Simulated scan of single mutants.
Amino acid sequence: MHVQVLCDSASDLNHDVLERQSVRSLPLKVILNGEEYEDGIGMAPSDVYSRMRNGQAPKTAQVSPQAFRDMFTHYAEKGQPFIYFALSSELSGTYQTAKMVEQEVKEAYENAQFDVIDTKAASLGYGLVVWRASELAKEGGSYKDILELGQYHAAHMEHIFTVDDLEYLQRGGRVSRTAAFVGGLLKIKPLLHMEEGKLIPLEKIRGSKKVLKRMLEVMDERGKDLKNQRMAISHGDDQERAEKLAEMIKEKYGTEEIHIDFVGATIGAHAGPGTIALFFLNDTYK
């Protein structure tokens, strides 16, 4: 029996990719003006960003224990092995909730074969991990090989990103209020990355035009086999700049596959409109 790959909506994989790869995704929740929506289902990312530009401040909520219970039990009852790759535990309590439910379901179904994996990744960095694991699953790969491949990609996935307005990160406690105010005055654009699943400031760049160039330089320093690996760029309702970055990468490295999509509401609610994020591997899987 093939292995089923599961994820949550913070992977930012769109419906077409999920369907094509036979991945099941559990939606996180977005809360706006007291109304709750399913991330990517009840409200499109573009609508969330539009509301944010108009001053609304969305909140997010993790996948419920019951949603995990229903999904995990569904496959355990069928005797189908599955792996749930989760959004970084440093950014959401979703992973911890899934681990709690994992224990419950394994006690009820002793022969169930499944794992809950903390990818320490987010947005399309997380999505690329899920995508590659699901490809191997569709090819009929073994449970052990799919688990190993997914964990390797998660451990070697780079996240390099910038935000258009530090205010959104300040609201989420990612930068101080003073830093956000000064950054706005000086037109400073922060460059951030992920370390062990946490968002970490990397450096500050004055002027938005220099940011994309610097992102390429960081990728050049850290990436490996940049021509042949699948990369991804996610954006906070800024398709034009995302495509510009993709063009720069293709021109420099001849990269054949760069997937571009929205930063979904789960991450976008904290990063804000104008976010640009680049994802690539710093090593290639043997």
Score class of each variant (00 low, 15 high):
34 G>V: 04
285 Y>C: 11
257 E>D: 14
227 K>E: 14
180 A>Y: 03
223 G>M: 03
50 S>M: 13
38 E>C: 05
183 G>P: 04
96 Q>K: 14
194 M>T: 11
163 V>W: 02
151 Q>F: 07
226 L>M: 14
260 I>H: 04
89 S>E: 10
179 A>E: 09
192 L>V: 06
248 M>L: 15
180 A>S: 14
282 N>D: 08
217 E>P: 00
90 E>G: 00
32 L>I: 15
60 T>C: 06
63 V>Q: 02
142 S>D: 11
69 R>S: 13
185 L>D: 00
109 Y>T: 09
35 E>S: 14
173 G>R: 11
11 S>H: 00
216 L>T: 06
52 M>Y: 09
27 P>G: 08
119 T>M: 08
15 H>Y: 11
213 K>V: 14
39 D>K: 02
78 K>D: 01
232 A>D: 04
106 K>Y: 03
149 L>V: 12
22 S>P: 00
134 S>E: 03
13 L>G: 01
79 G>F: 11
172 G>P: 14
167 E>G: 03
140 G>T: 09
59 K>E: 10
129 V>Y: 10
22 S>Y: 12
148 E>I: 00
212 L>N: 14
68 F>G: 02
267 I>C: 06
278 L>F: 13
211 V>I: 05
215 M>V: 13
91 L>H: 04
147 L>E: 07
151 Q>L: 07
285 Y>G: 10
5 V>P: 09
3 V>M: 04
29 K>D: 06
90 E>Y: 11
231 M>Y: 06
133 A>S: 12
264 G>K: 04
8 D>S: 01
269 A>I: 08
281 L>D: 12
11 S>W: 01
8 D>W: 01
195 E>Q: 15
145 D>C: 04
12 D>S: 01
130 V>F: 03
180 A>V: 10
187 K>A: 03
262 F>M: 03
67 A>T: 08
96 Q>I: 07
241 R>E: 12
194 M>L: 15
46 S>M: 12
181 F>R: 09
73 T>C: 13
207 G>S: 11
231 M>D: 02
76 A>S: 05
228 N>C: 06
167 E>R: 13
150 G>M: 02
10 A>N: 00
68 F>W: 02
247 E>A: 15
67 A>R: 05
267 I>G: 05
199 L>I: 15
178 T>Y: 01
274 G>C: 08
123 S>E: 14
128 L>S: 04
33 N>S: 12
172 G>K: 10
55 G>C: 11
50 S>F: 08
158 E>N: 12
270 H>F: 02
102 E>F: 01
199 L>G: 09
160 I>G: 09
17 V>Q: 07
256 E>N: 12
82 F>K: 02
72 F>K: 01
193 H>D: 10
72 F>P: 07
43 M>S: 07
4 Q>W: 05
96 Q>F: 08
166 L>W: 01
57 A>L: 14
132 R>G: 08
240 E>K: 15
55 G>K: 09
274 G>T: 07
100 M>Q: 13
138 K>M: 13
219 M>A: 10
171 R>Y: 01
169 L>F: 04
7 C>G: 00
187 K>I: 01
71 M>E: 15
256 E>C: 10
2 H>E: 13
224 K>Y: 05
99 K>P: 00
265 A>K: 10
118 D>S: 09
224 K>A: 08
66 Q>K: 15
98 A>W: 02
42 G>V: 05
74 H>Q: 13
254 G>C: 03
37 Y>E: 05
99 K>C: 13
59 K>L: 10
117 I>K: 05
21 Q>D: 00
